[in-house]
Write a protein that binds this DNA or RNA. Sequence first.
DNA 1: ATAATAGTGTCTTTTAGACAATATCAC
DNA 2: GTGATATTGTCTAAAAGACACTATTAT
Lengths: 235, 235
Amino acid sequence: MTTGSGYDPDEYPRVAVTVDLVVLTLRDGELCVLLVERGEEPWRGARALPGGFVRPDETLDAAAARELVEETGLRDVPGHLEQLRSYGDPERDPRMRVVSVAYLALAPDLPEPAAGSDAAGASWVPVDQASAGPLAFDHARILADGLERARAKLEYTSLATAFCPPEFTVSDLRAVYEAVWGRPLDPRNFHRKVTGTPGLLADTGRTRAEGRGRPATVYRAGPATGLHPPLTRDG
Amino acid sequence: MTTGSGYDPDEYPRVAVTVDLVVLTLRDGELCVLLVERGEEPWRGARALPGGFVRPDETLDAAAARELVEETGLRDVPGHLEQLRSYGDPERDPRMRVVSVAYLALAPDLPEPAAGSDAAGASWVPVDQASAGPLAFDHARILADGLERARAKLEYTSLATAFCPPEFTVSDLRAVYEAVWGRPLDPRNFHRKVTGTPGLLADTGRTRAEGRGRPATVYRAGPATGLHPPLTRDG
DNA sequence: ATAATAGTGTCTTTTAGACAATATCAC
DNA sequence: GTGATATTGTCTAAAAGACACTATTAT
């Protein structure tokens, strides 16, 4: 907005603004996205990203945070939430002009949305399956953009810790990278890398035994937000 | 958009959607941004980013491209145009709820907008000055986000060539990096780096003498879009 | 003991960055 | 010639990636 000559709100076309969410989590070492099943036309029965209208006095970030809480059925969703990009092709929704501001959320392993709650109908779907099957509207494109953003940001930020619970081991963190990037990493080089990045990990002084093998040191996320130098996914 | 139960368009608040442009160019080796002076309230007399309403049957990208042409007064604007992010705080425009989808445009040295044209009132302002002085609405924030995006993308993409005319020398390209990052780079290491990146530069076989010194080889932008490995600005 | 996972050390290759040296122009 | 810019080469330090090796657990 703008230079333009005076305008009357009524001159301008009605546009609806929504937020759509790409919510990613790790379940059993697999990267999953939260999808809902549409109960009505258009795209009745198809899977879609969760989302909804932005309310009159709400910021875009607040609308995304509200939808995230509503659709997961959790009071407080830990992790990370950031704006992804906006989608506004005139024909993306056949009912009216809808501009959607998409958000990317990353969360640690969350429970399956409860059947009785508002979040019923939402479920975690492995991203490979979600990307293959059809999705409502332009949500396949939004999901692809969200995945690419997540994959890229793991390279040069500490974002992977958003997929972990408050306390985690280096192996937990490596499992995040392997799931998001879809390829195995060398445990020894990975360990040296992340423990050698100042401020990334805060040692709790404790260890945790997970079945066989030497117990792993337990860390919390440190204050660092960037990775210098970055981890690389191409290799 | 989503899951929700049926809705009537009239239930939802009227929202205006605009595009705002952060148009960057190099003038005399200085990074400049295109600003307009507002002729009316609110923010009458203040400088603002160019922008305008998205038309009913227009994609967001098309609206941004149209505004770019209108505000520069050029038929065809070379360079690069990409979506930056959206801004939708309820109070960002006192007149009504306005969600702005910001775009980032990078262009080679463009002429001063002609006084008689539609683009009159627009002018190129050095970014240091634009960032310092007040801007209308939340445009200071949008400008800062655009600059950060441009600075970051020079590291790992071939975007710098968008600031150059179709044919350019390695020195021209280096001048882009130095202007955008605001720091000098070693000409020798820079030369080795960019000429050694496959697909970044296409040799025209010609050279060009610019005053004193050995004539430089003239290149065109090659097919490569990414830089592997990246150039680094912290270094 | 054996298998499994955690963590350390070592080596090679690649790259960044500093900077010497050479090439080709204007003057 | 001198001075300026372009381009190539050389050296050092840092980092990536491969992988041997040690540490600590369960069985």
